[in-house]
Amino acid sequence: MAVYEKKYVWSILLRLFHWTFAPSIFTLIVTGLYIHWPWTNTWLEGSHQFTMATMRWIHFIAGMLFTCAVLARLYLWFFGNKYERVWDFLPITGRNIKNLFSTLIYYAYLTDHHEERLGHNALAGTAYFFTILLAIVQFLTGLYLLYPEGSIFTSIGASLFGTQQEARFIHYILNWYFAWFAMVHIYIVIWNDIKHPEGLISSIFDGFKFAKKEQ
């Protein structure tokens, strides 16, 4: 019978990042879709109920937290522990490129073989890497939309994305990316948690994973 030992993988800061990032994404999608399509029956005059204003307000605050979470993750790319650093999971080394393809094949049920590793596998890591890049685009377009006049974000936004409408379009499309990402992410972590005894889901709460003890 295999013997497992507890291994500390995710630092407090990474877990704080995750638990700021995840709820903010959920909130941003719900309120963002409302702003895109205000579906409630808002026929009352605006002075006594501010449905749209409240939705926008929640969206802005969630966006601020989202931005801070992304900044923290960027910091951890370079100054986190070895599982958190960006070169641990990007397919830029032979080991990671191999892992990327083997994980793909494994997820497609084409093989049962997979590499045990404590940090992100290369496929997850690559997905998270691009998600963070898109998150940067998302908060920059968001800040451009929030501060459309005479701020640093106006000039950044205008030079990177063009007009407000172009930025809004990018912002809206990426909203769907994050909805898709959240779905896929939750599905895969549950799938992995069922298949493996490493304690993937609990690791994002307490930071520990379980690895086979070498005997």
Binding site: T54, W57, F60, I61, L65, T67, C68, A72, L146
Partner: peptide, 28 residues
């Protein structure tokens, strides 16, 4: 009633954003 905790939604989001940025900087 002024939406956004009595400060207006953009103004209050800016305030909260600055505070969140401060907390993040402190955590880092």
């Amino acid at each position: 009633r002024i939406p956004g905790a009595g400060k207006g939604i953009q103004a209050s989001a800016t305030e909260i954003g600055k505070a969140a940025l401060g907390v993040t900087a402190a955590a880092l």
